[in-house]
Write a protein that binds this DNA or RNA. Sequence first.
DNA 1: CTGTGTCAG
DNA 2: ACTTCTGACACAG
Length: 772
Amino acid sequence: MASSWKRKYEEIDDNYDDGDNDVEVEDAEEDWGASMDDNTQGQHLHVPDKKQRRLSQSQHSLGEEDTSRVIVHIDVDCFYAQVEMIRDPSLRDKPLGIQQKYIVVTCNYVARKRGVTKLMGIKQAKELCPELVLVKGEDLTHYREMSYKITEALQKFSPLVERLGFDENFIDVTEAVNARVMSSSSPQLNGHTFPEIETEDDLLKDERHTRLVCGSQIAGEMRETLHSELGITCCAGIAHNKLLAKLVAGRHKPNQQTTLLPEGVQPLMGTLKTVRNIPGIGSRTFKRLQTLGISTVQDLQDAPAGVLQTEFGPQTAQVMQQLCCGVDPSPVTPTGPPQTISDEDSFKKCGSLQNAKERMTGLLQSLMKRLKGDGRIPHVLRVTVRKLSSTNKWTNRESRQSAIPSHLFGTGGDDNKDKETISKLLDLCVMLFCKMVDVSHPFHLTLINICFAKLETRSKQSTSIKSFFQNEPSSTQTLQKSPTLKKASEQSQTPQGKSSRSSIESFFSRPQQRSSSFSEARNKSCVTSMADHTPYTTTSQENTEATPSTSLKSFFMAKNKDGQNNSVGTDFATESCHNDHVPCSNLNDSSLIRTFTTFQYHGHSHGVSFAQETEHNPLSRVRTLPSGVDPEVFSELPPEIQKEIYAFSYQGSGDVDRNPSTSQSIDHRILNTETPCSSENLSQIECQGSEEVEETVSKVVNTESVAEDIVLPSGIDPAVFSELPREMRVELLNSWQRNNTSTDSTQKERRPQAKKTGKSPSIAQYFKKTDS
DNA sequence: CTGTGTCAG
DNA sequence: ACTTCTGACACAG
């Protein structure tokens, strides 16, 4: 098999020697990133004699690539523009651009004919095409909704659907192909092939052709489904791995599909202008490769493995060389529900805390709506800012995060308590914000992002807590991509198909849950599915509830993200950026591996460690307020008091400890409410209401390990327990205490409801502004 | 566990 | 004018 494979490849390779120059001409659309500098100097490093290695060696080191899979890549045509044209069909025949700030982020094909391209400035686009209709696209709500509808529709064809951004999906249809190949006789090709063939008879000569042709049928059905159910057109690529499926999907655009025949692999790779066009090789990696004299795919194929290994480490080196040969064993890993929910806004300038608070409030309001639609509750809050910098190096973003006190989203009722919740969250945001920005001096931000992370299902908390102690990655876990897949791959390639089953089940175990995961946007329409199909849904446990508010629909989720920017006040251009720790060429080579393998990377990284902010900005910079301290209140305190608080600031579960020595003891004091520092402003920890537990709590909380005299319910691992965040330990102890039952208490713990009303004092009061 | 970097669309 | 608005993941400290 391998030999015949190779023979074919060589034949075709010859045929294609000339053919690759006209290949990617056709449309100016997707050439993104191809904007390589004119560094075409073919001076690729001198390769030792036998570079015969390329394909054969790469495959060797990993075993034969599995060419029996059939992978479909679905790429929606100008996604945002399509969504807007669906919302307003009168836009269909007009040149349409989607505007975010001053940029046309994408446009329809009418506009493309006029020369408008992605990421073109508004001004330039208007000059080029004065009739261009612009629709604001800063609020992604509608796009996100449609995106998940698409993914859900595709899941009807296979449970193995992996999202890539909002507008692309990979689907492993190997199983479906197996089923069809067995029953049906000779499938009909749908769409184009690469390379093109004269007659379909040519397809019969190889069984792998048959399987791919079968895949083209399925891809056709997928596209038909998307069109009829959602009105969406898209391109599809069909191949035996993800890399190839993605690359070949772009051969015929828009609204067409292309199947890659095995003999087309090398020719297809040959159409890439540089290795930068290989997904997984980003700008950073590309620059490093250029340093080595490697730019084209051929360069990389020919490069001595040793050179690459020296620069990137063995794993990355191998992956890169596989990729550039079209080899990609990475599995289609089903995408679970989103792991983060974030919202951001960019602007010309934000230079005051007041302004920042207004912006963050807006972000929080829209985030709250999304959270409700999702049904899970976040346990981590992260604030990110981008500071204006003359040497606007890439990506100068800074972030701070902290745990979210668990009571904040306690009962999750869509009460009018949102107001309160938001204001408490805003306080948290301000605190984090102040850790990054010295608000007592002029500052200049150009972006703020708020992100909710560590999302867990609410499921009455009981299951959530329970699962924490039992290794069951049950419904409540943060839900991430199956770690088992990584394991499995340790021994070179694993035939994916079924081995991943078990892990998949955890994601798709319940239609309910999955739907909730994808539900943020979804609403009534479409998706009559849910109930039917999904045969692999049997795993269900007692999940019953956990169904979030399927009711509250985010269809008309207000777009509270407006663009009232430009509230520029003072113009100070001086902006001292002592911030130029240039993260020069260093860093992990992990992204490649991450994207295209299931291997764990152990590689080194000649690291440059930068000193990062640390010591500039003396005390005005809020460092580590004890969690629970209202920053507003704090900021109004006399400096002396502030210092004192700092001195005693301890690290809540989410805080960075910049003062390690204090951590334990301070924790202790606060727990016992002997807060040494201006007590009314400090948090006394949420458990203070129940005195009975206090003592126990302090014992548990203050020691690394669980004290002996503390009785944990059976089934609870003390070691695990002791590592929990303080707040959780407190909560647990409270709950156990309450229903003094021993063992059974691990079962069901409805308790958290107890605090629903204002009943439990808890930290709530410390987040309260002085008002109420 | 947090913060940053890289990658992707 | 390498931008917008996301989202995932890995490593280092």
